[in-house]
């Protein structure tokens, strides 16, 4: 489809068609967090199972478009087995991949995600996003950034809870 190759990369469609880590985990011991995209009604529930400092397992359920679902699927594979600090770094790196491009687009705060922090220090640039790089094309379609970040914001909330950070 001309014009859409940047958005619907093959790897994205693959994660959409064959979502990884789909399902639930018993709570407790796992912790469940649900995120909503009030604009389009998409919702996602993450189940996070910690072992000490490590994200031992992660599962997700919910419904949404190919971008939100594939981003969630890739997110789950990217953070599974990671330490909390690594998971946090991956979240920051992913968000910064989006927000850097947002600024470059037009600096229009109307399209930015309320959950975005300012660009992160260079250290995060070392975190490899692997397949997630395929989502970079989403920034050319500003309304879809919220789709891509839904699962990430939900994960950040879950980690906040697990680390005992008071809800903002």
């Amino acid at each position: 489809m001309p014009g859409l190759e940047d958005l619907y990369r093959e790897i994205i469609l693959d994660h959409y068609r064959n979502p990884r880590n789909r399902g639930e985990l018993p709570t407790p011991p796992a912790y469940a967090e649900t995120g909503f995209n009030p604009l389009c009604g998409d919702e996602i529930t993450l189940y996070v199972q910690m072992e000490g400092d490590r994200v031992a397992d992660i599962r997700l359920t919910g419904q949404g478009c190919s971008i939100s679902q594939s981003s969630a699927s890739m997110m789950s594979t990217a953070v599974k087995g990671k330490s909390l600090a690594e998971a946090r770094a991956t979240i920051r790196r992913f968000k910064s991949m989006m927000s850097i491009h947002e600024h470059r687009l037009d600096g229009d705060s109307g399209t930015s995600d309320a959950g975005f922090e300012p660009d992160e220090p260079a250290a995060e640039a070392e975190v490899s996003l692997g397949d997630l790089e395929a989502l970079q094309g989403v920034v050319k379609f500003p309304v879809r950034i919220k789709c891509a970040t839904l699962s990430w914001n939900t994960l950040a909330q879950a980690l906040d809870h697990l680390e005992g950070v008071p809800a903002s």
Partner: peptide, 9 residues
């Protein structure tokens, strides 16, 4: 096909 994707196409 999710309506979001449909609308994009």
């Amino acid at each position: 096909v999710h309506p979001h994707d449909l609308s994009q196409v």
